[in-house]
Design a protein around this nucleic acid. Structure first.
Lengths: 253, 253
DNA sequence: CGAGAATTTGAAACCCATCAATGACGGTGG
DNA sequence: CCACCGTCATTGATGGGTTTCAAATTCTCG
């Protein structure tokens, strides 16, 4: 399809948008009376480019959200856990494909109703903006991970993030389940399955984790894992790195 | 700072948020009466973690937005061009640092006023949501680029994206200026300056671009460039790749 | 228990990063 | 005016982390 240059850039065109978000909210109250639907593993909730007619709440199970390049290369932009919300698009088409990793239960709410609710519930749009912001923050974390972290750091970051995400309270879980396959993890972290596997093995040999089964991980030394993740201050920083930028004259004004 | 595990994950904590967006809008009308401020190259508009007290519109020049890992590794999450908007946070702190690449003129608007305006201007929150969605779409494109594209593909994608962005009308510019340094480009694309430079040279040798100067690029074969970017259908796809996922029972309902 | 799928492990190749040196500008001061 | 100098970009040589290709092993589930 030799699309001529100007109008091509296939994916960033008039595509849809977002999103995922969790929380207690006016938002979730919308779903109260909706029937629960079930999806089998590897079935899609919707495809990238589908008309974005509904928003969804995940009741049970895990979803993966992904985009593809035309030749099939895939990046998983995120996983969705119970309690999180999906499809709050503000374009008319979905930005990505959403598929079930495990058996999933979810509720659906029509976007048209959502817009009506926006008028009625004053806090709702604010809430949706906050959700979009959280999403963006996560996306930027992920960009930093993909652009600059080593394989080992990516895996460590991933394990820590999952541990925090699945635990309802403040203390991250010590033992986590990873329902997704190594391929899913690889496509999420910008690696191959072999590299993912080797990174797990290395962390295991170093005693930071153990793997009772491929889909179950015990975090034996969470703070050591945190250190490996690249998010900690490096030990040796005797003198602070000098800022290379100039303080702006703008801020004080 | 050996933060104990639970509360660590420094960056995704209660940090701030967003954003960038362009457009004709109610939004931009807010800035009408504001004085124009000037920033010199490499000076910061604000730092990651600063209280997010203002939103900004870029009048002239280019900004870079970036995040750092504690050890100094950097990822530029985006560049901001004239007409685009910055700092529409919905947390209380900025998510990233914003610095001038070139001499920049911008206008500032207090966020507190913005919230007041939200009540007065009904379309505004909708507009802001749309902006957040565009931003997210761009972020996901970038994730795909960082996770799965080769150096050559990244550079081609970047050039095409800039050509589209700087041209007000629909037809991308044939000749573009890149005010940012090779290091900025490298940190945006998850590469090193050497790899960026070699990719430019290779595209030049292949006749797809020419480089009158390091900061000026002529796109000689835009559609060939598009083909290199990885966003085109690969030539050889005699039979469509089989979908590996199952059509969901959910959608038709 | 058995079969296919998923994961792990191994060996080799490759792309990009790193280290190093040269070249091109742009601004400054003699 | 032009040599000097610092910064940035380019080019070269080498090395390493990850990918690719391949095979063995383990897991899962009917």
């Amino acid at each position: 399809m030799a699309t001529t240059f100007p109008y091509a850039i296939a994916r960033s065109a008039p595509v849809p948008i977002l999103v995922r978000a969790a929380g207690e909210s006016q938002f979730r109250s919308l779903f109260a009376t909706r029937p629960i639907e079930r999806i089998e593993p590897n079935a899609a909730v919707f495809w990238e480019g589908d008309p974005a007619n509904h928003v969804f709440e995940v009741i049970e199970g895990v979803l993966r959200l992904y985009r593809l390049l035309p030749d099939g290369r895939r990046t998983i932009t995120g996983f969705l856990f119970p309690g999180e919300i999906l499809g709050v698009a503000f374009k008319d088409r979905y930005l990505f494909t959403a598929e079930a990793v495990t058996p999933v239960k979810l509720q659906r709410y029509p976007r048209a109703h959502l817009y009506a609710s926006l008028a009625r519930m004053p806090g709702l749009s604010r809430e949706m903006l906050a959700m979009a912001c959280d999403e963006l923050s996560a996306a930027q974390d992920q960009m930093l991970l993909l652009a600059r972290k080593t394989a080992q750091e990516r895996i460590a970051s991933f394990l820590i993030a999952v541990a925090r995400r699945i635990s309802p309270d403040a203390t991250p879980a010590r033992e986590i389940e990873l329902p997704m396959t190594r391929l899913d993890i690889a496509d999420y972290l910008g690696l191959t399955i072999e590299t993912v596997s080797r990174a797990f093995t290395k962390l295991k040999l170093e005693g930071l984790i153990s793997l009772p089964s491929p889909h179950r991980v015990m975090l034996r030394k969470p703070d050591a894992l945190q250190a490996v993740s690249g998010e900690d201050e490096p030990d040796e920083a005797p003198m602070a790195a000098p800022r290379r930028t100039v303080r702006s004259a703008v801020w004080p004004s």
